[in-house]
Structures are given as structure tokens and as C-alpha cells.
Design a protein around this nucleic acid. Sequence first.
RNA 1: GCCCGGGUGGUGAAAUGGUAUACACGAGGGACUUAAAAUCCCUUGGUCCGUAAGGGCCGUGCGGGUUCAAGUCCCGCCCCGGGCACCA
Length: 987
Amino acid sequence: MAYEHKRIEEKWRKHWKDAKTYRVENDPQKPKFYALDMFPYPSGAGLHVGHPLGYIASDIVSRYKRHKGFNVLHPMGYDSFGLPAEQYAIQTGQHPAKTTEVNIARYREQLDNIGFSFDWSREVRTSDPSYYKWTQWIFLQLFGSWYDHEQDKARPIGELIERFEKHGWNGGDGSAITGNEELDPLVEFSHTDWATFSEKHQQQILLRFRLAYLSEAWVNWCPALGTVLANDEVKDGVSERGGHPVERKRMPQWSMRMTAYAQRLLDGLDPVSSPGLDWSESIKEAQRNWIGRSEGALIRFALSAGTGVVEVFTTRPDTIFGVSFVTLAPEHELIEKITPPERMAEVMAYVTQAKNRSERERLTEVKRVSGVFTGAYVKHPFTHMDIPVWVGDYVLGGYGTGAVMAVPAGDQRDWNFASHFNIPFTAVTENWDISKGADESKEATLTNSVFLNGMKVADAIPRAIDELIAKNAGERRINFRLRDAAFGRQRYWGEPIPIYYKDGIPYPLPESELPLVLPEVDKFLPTEDGEPPLARATNWNYNGLAYETTTMPGWAGSSWYFLRYMDPGNEGRFASPEAINYWQQVDLYVGGSEHATGHLLYFRFWTKFLKDRGWINFDEPAKKLVNQGMIQGVSALVASVTRTEWESKTIVIANESIVLVSKGMVDDLNKPKTIDLVRSLFVRHQPEIEVASAELVHIHGVTWRYVPVDNVDSADAVVLDKTLTSIMPWADGLPIEAVFENGKLVCKREVEKMSKSKWNVVNPDDIITKYGADTLRLYEMFLGPIEQSKPWDTAGIEGTSRFLKKFWNLFHTESRNQESGISESFIVSEEAPSKAELKILHATLKKVEEDIEKMSFNTSVSQFMIACNGLHELKCSKRQVLEPLTIALAPFAPHIAEELWSLLGHNTSITTATWPKWDAQYLVEDNFSYPISFNGKTRMQLEFPTALSKEEVEAQVLANPEVQQRLEGKAPKKVIVVPKRIVNIVL
RNA sequence: GCCCGGGUGGUGAAAUGGUAUACACGAGGGACUUAAAAUCCCUUGGUCCGUAAGGGCCGUGCGGGUUCAAGUCCCGCCCCGGGCACCA
């Protein structure tokens, strides 16, 4: 009989489901704990062994906290809008809702098999209208809000209108405006002006302040996907998903004014201002970099001819006397205005060429300096000298003002530019040879700088700004790298944006109209004239007025889902104030670090907004964040012969067959024997080679191609129980031959991300079938620290499997019987435990409790093994030891624990059991075996009672004959005794 | 280039400044068995001396330092992983 994981696990899964064991109520009488896993996207590939890593960890903590008396919210749901389902819909015509449904069912089945304590009654799906009703509602709140920098929080747009009606606008709230500001700055107006403005004009002005707004914006347009991508969805100039080229383009675009929150998003990361935010330093650092705050000055350079100014942003206003030219980004709108006619052709030629350089080129050709002189000059604010204005593509249109004051002596990029075009410049720091490069040191002392001479950089910066302010030529300015987030996609499978258009102006849909349900369309493709798929919907309008046709991006639904779990069925509000007030912030948030600058930033942004508007009462969503490491796959690759050279030119050797070569022969492909073999293999499928008597003279190379890992054995050889053509996913039906090595076709192995396209995905189902969910759970935890990435290797799984069997056997004994064969009986006794047994128990309880608190699960699994080995040796089957141990094991291996718990005679679920307290009195040692070291090197062990004082230990050690022998009669220089640790004798 | 992690046996890894390599895998040996599987027991960092018992030396990426004592702290390098980057 022994431990039967299949029977036990099925039995308890069903029981938990029927008894609603994991149902959780909002019970204000109990302390709460909120453990959340990052939303999974239900992909068609199903769950692989990497996914559950974080879920198991949070499940252990959740179960542990429940034993500790907390009311634990541990929900799960699906981020079910998204590109893959839509892509699939385009290919097959199947509605994405259908495929999503199928995928979710598969996920659910797999998740259920692992025995998580999720409360499924709280499941949410972002694509469900009852959920996205509230995503749309939050959008409307954002649309109906502006950022008041005086109060430093979002306020209803009505307050702004009131302000305009009373005072007009003097430009003072300009820092709240971002959309279109560079191209079309908003000019000030009086309250009487406001009253005379048409409604359309008023609405256009309000759009400049709304937190969700529509504007002409530079976007990352991806022609292949037919959609706009967010900055963080673009990697190296291509789309993160699919790797299609992306180009910069101006388009009307829904955006979120996240920049208004830049400072607060940054402050929230600061341990001083936000002491409760227990996130890893690397994630916080990634967010800081992404927000990219820099302090400096905005400096205005008046044009030498005509009127107007060039504004630049600089972090080094102290180097103002080193300015030798000003550089504009090719996108800068002033270029056309300031370039004199005789230079226009040359300048515009450069601008066109520079703008058309793809992002990728600009990224890869960093060292190439290019630019053009506009022919225009600006005045230096202090010296009034003429400074030439250049255009250069090293200046970015989207950052700062799109213009820089170039100080070659102090900035290496400016230095490169000046050197390339032979623009003269002078040093601005003492003792610096400007022929070698720029002095970017912050420790430098300034020179050739009039009133700044002799000052250190740190002192010169504020002085320079003060002087600029006095001359009305500049001001203090803080600049952020963070951009407003693009919020519209030219896609079908997302939340419709609850907006309709009247006279070209977007208006919010009344709350009573929500949810605005995704309409049916005939195809999931853009229309012939390039409009998004929603434009295909018929009879889809608001009282005859057109709806917005773009949909929300993937991050919309996941930016607030943690609130919906608190009160998922609420039809009148996204969650009730009582529920929010009870559950508050997420106490433990577990997910991958790849969301560092995407999801985790938007998530914080929306939380702060909801706080500002009074919907919730905290402004950070998650107190503690743990990033689980990636479980990598071990891909298998096989060499296939690609380039071959044949003697006869009369026939073409077509790709009618594929020849594989075992790994060991790849290094020496052109051995005559291999050549012969390869030739004969080609001939087998292409007899015309023989007819033409074409000879293979050289094999030039191989291509490594993926082999599905299921078909490769532990010795890296392809398992040959099927035809090679049916094994190789890329074969396309072509016949495959192989050159073997001792009868084997050996692959090379590579550790990389687990992915369907690499054929290295291992799913948990087979492991559960073979070993059970409890073994899988323990094994994933046993692999190493949770944050660490590691390749998946089942080699060690036997260890955790054996441990469970051994643990089971502490409770049981097997007996052999002539008639019935082997039978098992439950042997737990009521006998009082010995001191040694209690010591094992309490040491384990202590270690496991401490380890769970610090999320060190690998070491707690080790401790269980140590305990089990120890009790096994003591032949301990006593209830007083095994029962508490079973509770402690329950968070890790819930099925076996539940079974043993019921065998111990309990009628209630082990999940309701109280966590056993460890007691220090059982851990007290009477004796300690001291390592005795001489000059730090351990030489022997001596056992003394722990009650002995330092002095007594020292005296006894020195009295020991073996120690005496080592001392050779000499007195030691020093003896260090650390009680219950070590004795060190210094000679 | 900058910012975060990390480098320890054949492998996954453990170690409040205090016996480096716990726990597990693998490997080797043994017990049980007709046999195999399963299970159980023993050995397992390197190297040198010794028939043996036992003992010496070296060992946590490299080089220094602090300390009675360093995988752990400090300084300087090297390598690997992740993030950011013509960011003014």
C-alpha cells in the first residue's frame, strides 16, 4: 500500500471543493492578510513548471498565516484581454472570447491539480463586462480629473472649470500640461476670454489638463501589428512581442498623464518617505531609472535675429560660459522658422534624413556623429556673444525641450560633436586638457566663467541659476525621463474606451451607460481605410454619435484588479468602502521582475490616483513585493547540414531531404567517412544525385535546430521510438536522415527562457501524475532561493518524493501476510515523547516558522528532511511529535498533511488547525562540543556543560593533556572563548 | 558606460564574523531479493604521508587589508546574469 499520492490528492481536492474550505469572508473581527500573485495571462500553451513557483510560495505563506489566525485573502484570476488571443482570432476567425474561455479552463484544471488554497469564488477576469465596467469607470474618473500642483493631487475637472470661470489661466499651472505642449503651447487667457470661448474651444483646453486625454502625440507605431506600442513594449526599435519594426509617428492618441505623478512615484520608493514599502532594491532602482528625475535649469537663449527664444534644459547651468553652440533635435519645430533661406535646402535635407533614421539605426550607430549648421545664432545671456545654432540627431525630440546648450568642455557628446565639426571651444574647469575630451567631473573647479570662477560645481550650479533668474533668462527646472503612458490600441480584444465624439470632441459616456460592451465585428482586422477593428461594428453608437474605436491597453485591467478581489460581486461600486477598508494594501505581492517598469508603475499610479480622489485610503498598492526567479528550460538542439558543395553543376541539390549530424561529429564534418555517409543519405531520397554522379566535396556548416525536449533522453540523445520527421517540429514533412554516433543522435543543450518556440517547455501535469502535487510543490521550493533563476531539472525530484514517503512511514508500518500480501497499519502512539524527539520537533517548528517569515522555503524543506531523518532513526511514531509536525508541513504539502490529520482522528480540516508554538525550553543543550582551534584552525573537539562560564571553559581546555601537548609547555598569548560557539587559542 | 544581483563540491545548494560544504541529487560500496525495482545502511572537496588507526597541507572567482577568527566586513580587480542608456 504505502503512500498513494494519487488517491490521497484526488480525495482531498474534491473534499476542499465540496466543503468550500478556501472560501474567505470579509470578517472585520479577524486580522487580515492579503497575499496576491501577479495576474496570469491565460496563454494557449497552458501552465509550465515556472508559473507555479511564485504561486506555491504565496500559497505557503497564505496557509501559514491562516494557521496563525489571520483571515487570508489569496485570490486568483485572469488578465484575459490580450494580443495572442486576438492574433489567433485573426488567423482562425475564432472569437477571442472563445479561445480565452478554453485557455482559462485549461489553466484552471492545472492550477487545481497543484492544490492551491485560492478562493475561486472571487475569481476575476479582465475581459468580463462586469469587471471592465469598473475599468471603464476608473477611466472616466481619470478623464474627469486634472492634477492640481498646488495641492499636489488629482482633483475633479469641475474645480478647474470653476477656476477658469473666475480667474482664467495665467500659465502658472503649466507643469500639469504635457500633451502637445511642444507643438502648440497653451497661451494664457482671462476669465472673460474663457466665457467667450466656444464649447469646442473650452473642451480642447480642458483636454490639456485631463489625466486621461487625447492629443497628437509621438507614438511608437508598429505597421506589422497595426497598433501603437508603449515605450516599454518596444525593445531595440522592434516590438517586444513578435519583433516587428517600430517607427516614430505623430497620431491622435489617448494617453495617461502619468508624468503628473512622477515625483510621487519616485518618493514612494524612498525608504524615508515610504518606510513600509518592502520591495527589492533592484526593482526600486529600475523604477527610479525609468522615472529618471534630473535637476537643473531651463535656460532661454534669445535669437540674434528676429524675435523668439530657444529653450534648453541642462543639469549643468554652471557651465554656461562654456557654451559654444546650441543643438536642436531634428524634430524641433523652430528649425524651419530660424533657418535663413540660403541654408534651408541643406538643413531640411539633413532634418528629413535624420528623422527618417529608424530608432534601430539611432541605437546601433551611437558613435556616428552627424549634424548641420542652421545659419542662425542666439545670444549668450551673460556675454551677449552670438552662438551658432546646429541641428544634431544626438539630441532627442522627446526629452527636455528638444534642445541642448552644447558645452564641449563639460559634456562628452558635445565634445564629440564639436570635434567632428571643428567648432572652437574653451575649457571651463581648472587644470583640464580639453584636447583629450570633456571634463564631466562634479568635483571640478570652474574657470573662464566670470562670476563662477574658483567655485566648485556644486556651489556654482545654484549661483548660475540665481543669476539666470535675475536676468530673466532661465529658471530652476526638474525634468523627468518618464513619458505619459500611451493608452489606446488599434485592437479589438480590449476594453472599449467609454467615450463618444461630438463635433470632433471626445465626451465621457454617462456612468449609467457602463459597461460599454465590446461589440461584435465581422473580422478582427483594421478596416480598409486603416481604422481599428471596432469601426467595423454596425449600429454601435451613442444616440447616433460615434464611439471611440481604440481599446485600452493590456495594463488597464491589471492596474486595479487587487481592489476587485476584495469585493468581486459588487454591482454598485468597484469595491465597497468596507471591503477596501478591511483588506487595505496587498501584504505580499509575488511575481516576475519583468514587470518592474511596466505593470508595477501603472499599478502604483492608479492607486495614487484613486487615493487622491478619495476612493481608497492608501497610496501604495503592495507593501511587500517578492520577485520569483525564472525557471529556465533546457533546450535541446540538433545539428542539421545546411551548406554543402557538390562537384557536378548539372543538377541542383534541392531541399528535398534533411540530414542531421550527431553532436560529436560536428567539429570535424569533412572527414571522408562522414562525407560519404552524408552523401549516401542525400542519395537515398534524391537518386538523381547518383544518376548525375554528383560528388559531395565539402560540408560548409550546420544549423542548430530545436528538438522538443520530451524526445531527448538524459544522455542528450534523441529517443528514436518515432520517425525523425515526426519528432522535428520544423521538418515540414520532409524526410530526415541522420549520421549517428555509436547508434545515437546526440543534441547540444542550452539553458534559456522556457518558451513554446524553443520546444523546451515542461508542464507540471506529467510530474504530478508521476510524483503528485505535494512532491512538485516541495521540489519547486527545494530548488533554491525563490528569487533566483534556475534551469528546470527533474534530477533531484526523487529526494522530495522519498522524503514524503519517509514521512508517511513514520505514521505507518508495513507487514507481510501470507494471505493478503503486504498490508499497512497506522501506528501512531500516545506515548510521551523523549527529550531528543521534542528537541527535533521544536527545532523544526522554530526553523520553519522563521524561514517562512523570510520566504526561505528551500531551507525549511531541508529542515523537514532533517526532522524526518532524525525521527526515523529514533523510530518515533508518537502523536505529540507527529501531530504538530503535520500542521507545520501542511502549508507545503497540503494533501498528505490533510490525510494524516484525518488519520490522526480529526474531523475538521487541517487548514483550521492552530500553528504549533515552539518552546525554547526543549532546545536547551546540556553540553556543547566545543571546536578547539589554534590560531583559528580547528584541531579537536572537547565537550563541556553549557552551564560553564567562559573562565571555567578556558581553565578546563588548558588543563586538557592534548591541548597541553600542542602548547609544548608555552603559555598561549590569548584564549578566546565564545560560549556555545568556539574556543580559539592564540599561540 | 551607469545601476542592481551573483560567483562555494560532479550537480541544485546551506552557513547571526565563530567547526565551510547542512539538506538533496548523482556516484561508489554493502544488505534484503532467484533476480530486478523499491527500501535500508555506509562512503563521497582536493591533495600528501601512513599497512592501518590517524595525521599534515590546500581549499568559498582573483589580489590585498581589518580581526584572536573572514564565504561573510573593507579596498582594488576579473567573470556571469538582469535593468537602464546619445537623458543634456
